[in-house]
Amino acid sequence: MLAFCMLPFSCIKDHKVEHFIIDKSASAMEWKGYLKDGSGNNGTIKVTGRLFAAEPGMITGGQISFPLSSLININLPTDELKQQLIHHLQSRDFFDMATYPHIRFDIISMVPDKDISHTYHVAGELIMLGKSNPVSFPVKIKLQGERLEVTGETGIDRTLWGMNYASDESAPDGMYVKPGIDVQFKVVALRKVH
């Protein structure tokens, strides 16, 4: 989820707060979950939201949203199996989309890595199932004109948000889903023209 907030660039004029809007068509996050034997499923979810910058070279925050209605599976062999998995992920066993239609990431800070060029450490709060937990991870940033591209990867433990379905490690193969979810993301944000 991601960290597109790190504009180390002079994008702000006269110290006014500027908004950077995430380009939904150019941005996506890929997810992967695992069974006990190491196999698993993967897919994508869309990314929306905006970033805020209050002075040149400094992003001060932002809200990133992941609509659960946009969940897609890409590895299963048939559309029927893909839909079965997605409906299960959207059910109360996992993300409970009917009650919580979005996952949200609120950016709190982003700090440059002193040793690795164009790399930053983003910290924020990830909100799922109505519960918030702190997360942090590294990102890489590339600016081309008004186009900001942020890429990175991280992992989360779903049980920290109370998503405990099939989390009993003593269960037989096929009945245990590992708590860890791996994500990779590419986010493109464009400066909003007033």
Rank of each mutant, 00 (worst) to 15 (best):
L148S: 13
P112T: 14
S10D: 08
D115F: 15
L68V: 10
F66W: 08
M128G: 07
W161Q: 06
H19Y: 14
T154L: 10
D173R: 15
G162K: 11
I107S: 06
K36P: 03
Q83E: 09
H118V: 02
K131W: 00
V150I: 14
S10E: 09
P67I: 08
L35F: 15
P101S: 13
N164E: 13
F66S: 11
E55M: 13
D93S: 04
A26I: 09
I181V: 06
S91F: 12
K192M: 05
G152R: 01
M175Q: 13
P77Q: 08
E30D: 12
T78W: 03
T154S: 13
P101G: 10
Q63R: 13
F94V: 07
M163V: 06
A54C: 09
S117R: 15
I64W: 05
I103D: 05
G61N: 01
R147Q: 10
G124Q: 04
L71P: 02
W161P: 02
T60G: 07
A26Y: 02
P67S: 10
T78C: 07
S25W: 06
R191V: 04
G155V: 04
L126F: 01
G62T: 06
D14Q: 09
E169M: 14
V111L: 01
P101T: 14
R50F: 15
H87C: 01
M163A: 07
W31I: 10
P179E: 02
V187A: 08
P138D: 06
G33F: 06
I74E: 11
H87E: 04
T159L: 02
D79R: 03
T48W: 02
D168A: 07
M6Y: 11
I45R: 04
K131R: 15
I86Q: 09
P8V: 12
I21E: 05
I45V: 13
I72L: 10
K178W: 02
S70C: 03
G57N: 08
Y34E: 12
S10C: 03
A3D: 03
F9N: 05
M128E: 08
R50I: 13
C5N: 07
C11S: 15
G124T: 03
S65I: 14
D79A: 10
R191E: 04
K178V: 10
Y120S: 01
D23N: 14
K114P: 00
P8E: 12
L7F: 13
D93K: 08
F95Y: 05
P67Y: 07
N73S: 09
G61M: 03
P101A: 12
Y34H: 14
R191W: 04
D37C: 06
K36V: 04
S10Y: 11
